[in-house]
């Protein structure tokens, strides 16, 4: 028997190797549908939103807290104030920096919120921003009524966003985005961010 003949025989016998049964189409399709639903796979063509690295959230929060801490230290500094110690103007500057960064974060957050579907990461970020808004509102340094009103509006919006399931329900999302539009939150935010220190509303 030649090699070719032997190969031919082997090929014929090999057709019985792991001979597949009828394809269980429906069963597998149901499983695929279920697994994709479980993984919350939404329309295939939808590009996956790139999750912002937690690094940036953490870094911005750290900067914000540092600003607050510097401000507090400056105000509570006991004893005679040395020439190099932060003055009232310097501590206000720290608060201005923190406020600017906060408003920038809010602008980014709200812009993305309007364009994408919410998820748990969104809510975690909203909680962080809510805490920061309340800290800022507690600071006596912020006296400009425009900035105060803006921060109060932002606080209300964030309270709505952090409600469980709020970002997942279309009706809730619509309420939030309608509120954003009615109160002109984003234009007011943008007014405050790029204009320089005189617009920060910090005395």
């Amino acid at each position: 028997m030649t090699e070719d003949e032997l190969d031919d025989r082997i090929r014929k016998v090999a057709r019985g190797y792991h001979e597949p049964p009828t394809t269980p189409r429906e069963r597998m399709w149901q499983a695929i549908v279920a697994r994709r639903a479980e993984a919350k796979v939404i329309p295939i063509g939808t590009p996956r939103r790139t999750r912002r690295p937690l690094f940036w959230v953490t870094a911005l929060a750290a900067t914000f807290l540092l600003g607050i801490a510097v401000d507090r230290l400056a105000q509570r500094s006991p004893g005679p104030v040395p020439a190099s110690a932060p003055t009232g103007a310097e501590s206000n500057l720290a608060l201005q920096v923190a406020t600017t960064q906060y408003l920038s974060r809010m602008e980014n957050f709200l812009t993305e919120f309007r364009m994408t579907e919410g998820d748990t990461l969104f809510q975690a970020q909203a909680r962080d921003l809510l805490t920061s808004a309340r800290l800022l509102l507690d600071r006596p340094g912020i006296q400009d009524p425009k900035v105060k009103a803006l921060l109060e509006d932002l606080e209300l919006i964030l309270v709505q966003i952090v409600q469980p399931g709020a970002t997942g329900r279309p009706s809730e999302r619509k309420l939030i985005t309608d509120g954003l539009q009615e109160r002109q939150v984003l234009p007011r935010l943008r007014d405050q961010i790029p204009a320089g220190q005189s617009h920060f509303g910090v005395s």
């Binding site: 190797y17 792991h18 597949p20 049964p21 269980p24 069963r27 597998m28 499983a31 695929i32 697994r35 994709r36 993984a39 796979v41 295939i44």
Partner: peptide, 22 residues
């Protein structure tokens, strides 16, 4: 199925393959 010889495994891999394809 040819590669695994096992219907459970073959189904599992087929499902996973299509999920990846989508």
């Amino acid at each position: 199925y040819r590669m695994t010889g096992d219907s459970t495994q073959a189904e599992e891999y087929t499902q996973e393959a299509f999920i990846k394809v989508y």
